[in-house]
Design a protein around this nucleic acid. Structure first.
Length: 373
DNA sequence: AAAGCGGGGTC
DNA sequence: GACCCAGCTTT
C-alpha cells in the first residue's frame, strides 16, 4: 500500500492513534487553565466573537473589547442590526480593522442566510467572511465538538519544540506538516478541551521567549529541551523589512468643525476617518507639496499653521511619519474646495460627532494632544 | 508564495 | 530594534 509522503514524515515523529500527549496535556489544563468569559458558554456567537478579536491579538488586549462587544451586542441579531461605522468605532484601537468589517458582514450573513444560527461544521464555517482555517477549527471544535485541530501560533510553537520540527512554519509545507501532526494528536473524544488546552499551554508554559521548561510536564520528553534548543524553535522565515510612508495631513477648520475624510478600501485603516491626506516619498514643508488643495490654499492666501510635532507611528510592516498643517477656511475657499472633494467622502464634523467616528490611533493621538475633541 | 493589514507587550 | 500575539484575504 502506497503511503503518502506526509505520513512518512509524521509517522517518524509520532505514531498515529497516540494518546499520551493529549492525556498529559488535558491533565495539565485541568489545573492551569485561564478563566475567560467565552469559556463559560457554548454559545457559538460568543465563541466566534472571541476568536475574531483574538486573531493576532493577546488575550489581555482583547478581553476588554470582548466585554464591551457583548454588552453592546448581546446577540448576533444586535450586531447585525448595527451600522458598520458603529462596529468600527467599538473596534477602535484594536487594529486590523478588516476583522471588524468582516465581523459585521459575517453577522449579517448568519442572520440573513443561516436563520441566525452559525453553521455547525468546519467546512461551512470556512465559507463565512473573516473565518479562516484556524477560526473555523476553533468554533467547530469548541462550540460543536467536531474533531478538527486548531493550529495557531501557540500550536506551532508547542509542537515544533516537543517534536523538534525544523520546517519553517510560514511555508505551505510547514503548515501542512503541523496540520497533519495536530490531527494525529487531537483528543477525538474531547476536541474542545484539547484545543483550548494546547493553546493555554503555549500561552502560559511554552511561551515564545523564556519558556518555563523547569516546571514543564514534558521536560523529559520535549526534544527541543533535551537538546537545549527550545529558544531556536519554531523556525520562521524572515519577515519583510518595514517600509516608510510619509503623511502630510491638512486640517481644515470651518467654524468649530473639522473636515474629516473616510478612508477607502485597498489601504490601511479602510472605513476609518482621518484628515485630508497628501502622501509623499519624503517629508515636505507645506510650500513644497504638490497638490490641488495646497494650490487652492495658496491662491486664497490662507495662513498655514504647521503643528510642531512630527509623529512617528510604528506598525508591524510600516513606519509612518506624519506632519499636520492647520488651515482656517473661508466661505469662498470652501466653495472651490468642494469641487476637489467630489470623488472623496470628506465632510465637516463637530467636535462631539468626531468623538463618535472610528479613527486610527495616530489620529486619536493627534486630536488628544491638540485638544480638538 | 508573497504581501498587506494595527496596535501593544516584552526583551 | 526585533519579535510575537487564539490569522485572514488578496494577488
Amino acid at each position: 500500500m502506497k503511503r503518502r509522503y506526509i505520513d512518512i514524515i509524521t509517522d517518524n515523529i509520532i505514531p498515529s492513534n497516540n494518546t499520551y500527549f493529549a492525556t498529559q496535556l488535558t491533565k495539565w489544563y485541568q489545573q492551569h487553565q485561564r478563566i475567560l468569559p467565552w469559556r463559560a458558554t457554548k454559545d457559538p456567537y460568543k465563541i466566534w466573537l472571541s476568536e475574531i478579536i483574538l486573531q493576532q491579538t493577546r488575550v489581555a488586549q482583547g478581553l476588554p473589547y470582548y466585554n464591551r462587544f457583548i454588552e453592546q451586542y448581546p446577540t448576533i441579531y444586535d450586531l447585525a442590526a448595527a451600522s458598520e461605522t458603529e462596529v468600527l468605532r467599538l473596534w477602535q484601537g484594536l487594529g486590523y480593522y478588516t476583522r471588524a468589517r468582516n465581523l459585521h458582514a459575517c453577522a449579517r450573513t448568519v442572520v440573513n442566510q443561516f436563520q441566525g444560527q452559525f453553521p455547525n461544521n468546519y467546512k461551512e464555517l470556512l465559507t463565512l467572511p473573516g473565518i479562516g482555517p484556524y477560526t473555523a477549527a476553533a468554533i467547530a471544535s469548541i462550540a460543536f465538538k467536531e474533531a478538527v485541530p486548531v493550529v495557531d501560533g501557540n500550536v506551532y510553537r508547542v509542537l515544533s519544540r516537543i517534536f523538534n520540527i525544523e520546517v519553517p512554519i510560514n511555508t505551505n509545507k510547514g503548515k501542512h506538516i503541523f496540520n497533519e501532526l495536530a490531527q494525529r494528536l487531537i483528543d477525538l473524544t474531547a476536541p474542545d478541551v484539547y484545543n483550548q488546552a494546547i493553546m493555554d499551554f503555549g500561552a502560559i508554559q511554552c511561551t515564545p521567549v523564556k519558556p518555563i521548561c523547569i516546571s514543564c510536564i514534558f521536560n523529559t520528553s520535549c526534544l527541543a529541551f533535551v537538546m537545549g534548543k527550545q529558544n531556536q524553535l519554531p523556525i520562521k522565515l524572515p519577515n519583510i523589512k518595514s517600509k516608510k510612508r510619509f503623511f502630510h495631513y491638512i486640517i481644515i477648520e470651518i467654524g468649530d468643525e473639522l473636515l474629516m475624510s473616510l478612508r477607502k478600501e485597498g489601504d490601511i485603516w479602510a472605513g476609518l476617518y482621518d484628515f485630508y491626506l497628501i502622501e509623499g516619498d519624503k517629508l515636505n514643508e507645506f510650500e513644497q507639496l504638490t497638490d490641488e488643495l495646497v494650490d487652492l490654499i495658496k491662491r486664497h492666501q490662507l495662513p498655514i499653521e504647521k503643528k510642531p510635532k512630527l509623529y512617528k507611528h510604528m506598525l508591524t510592516h510600516r513606519t509612518l511619519y506624519a506632519l499636520f498643517f492647520r488651515v482656517v477656511a473661508t466661505a469662498a475657499f470652501m466653495k472651490e474646495a468642494q469641487v476637489l472633494f467630489k470623488n472623496s467622502e470628506i465632510n465637516s464634523f463637530s467636535p462631539e460627532s468626531i468623538k463618535l467616528l472610528p479613527k486610527p490611533k495616530l489620529i486619536c493621538n493627534f486630536l488628544e494632544e491638540f485638544v480638538y475633541i
